[in-house]
């Protein structure tokens, strides 16, 4: 009797499973544009929100682009991410490996190009919301482990513009932090003027002058 009931249950289960899969399968897979700054920003946000739920944040530049592929696929299975989240996180991590090209033209003592061009028409606040907020948080105090407190009097903003511009542009690992900020926060679409604008916003919003 038990055997019969179990068989019936099994018979009912698989059609239900098949129906569920069929309904789900109609949802199309959406490709992502790895150059799109919105996608990179969403990838950074998903990465910061989901990876830390289980383990310490790994450095976005820890692995080569080809190695990030199976790693992120594996994490999709483990964390139950959507395929879109997987591709956006992968796009962000791979963009983090893109180093800044050699500066052209005159440079300051700190190595920052003196003449820079804007690659976007976004304001500093918009760039912050798009690219930086995932890790640094709305209040600038850091949303993920290792992100420094931008509002601290002796925090990063206590340093000169030249140093900060270089750190933002080339990426930087805060001493003691388990991970590094990728170049341009992982958004290679940003130009030099963009970075200067976002630094201006940081100083205005979180710097000592705003307090």
């Amino acid at each position: 009797m038990n055997r019969v009931m179990a068989s019936t249950r099994t018979f009912n289960f698989f059609p239900a499973l098949y129906l569920g899969l069929s309904v789900t399968a109609v949802l199309a897979t959406t490709p992502v544009d790895a150059e799109n700054s919105d996608i990179l920003a969403r990838g950074a946000k998903s990465w910061s929100e989901n990876c830390a739920r289980c383990h310490e944040m790994r450095d976005p530049m820890e692995f080569r682009d080809d190695l990030w592929r199976p790693i992120v696929t594996h994490m999709r299975v483990r964390a139950g991410l959507t395929g879109l989240q997987q591709r956006e996180i992968l796009a962000f991590l791979q963009s983090a490996n893109n180093r800044m090209p050699e500066p052209r033209g005159n440079v300051t003592d700190s190595g920052v190009p003196t003449r820079s061009t804007a690659a976007t028409d976004l304001s500093g606040a918009e760039i912050y919301q798009q690219t930086c907020v995932a890790c640094h948080g709305q209040d600038g105090t850091g949303a993920v482990p290792g992100a420094p407190d931008l509002t601290a009097a002796d925090g990063p903003l206590a340093q000169d513009d030249g140093i900060l511009l270089r750190h933002i542009t080339e990426g930087f690992k805060t001493p003691g932090s388990p991970m590094a900020m990728p170049p341009k926060g992982g958004n290679p679409a940003l130009g030099g003027a963009d970075i200067q604008r976002v630094l201006g916003y940081l100083r205005e919003k979180f710097g000592a002058a705003s307090q």
Partner: peptide, 16 residues
């Protein structure tokens, strides 16, 4: 059968 379903936006979702 595993996966994720968005709940509006990228930050809120269901995994199963």
């Amino acid at each position: 059968a595993r996966g994720g379903l968005p709940l509006g936006g990228n930050s809120r979702f269901i995994n199963y």
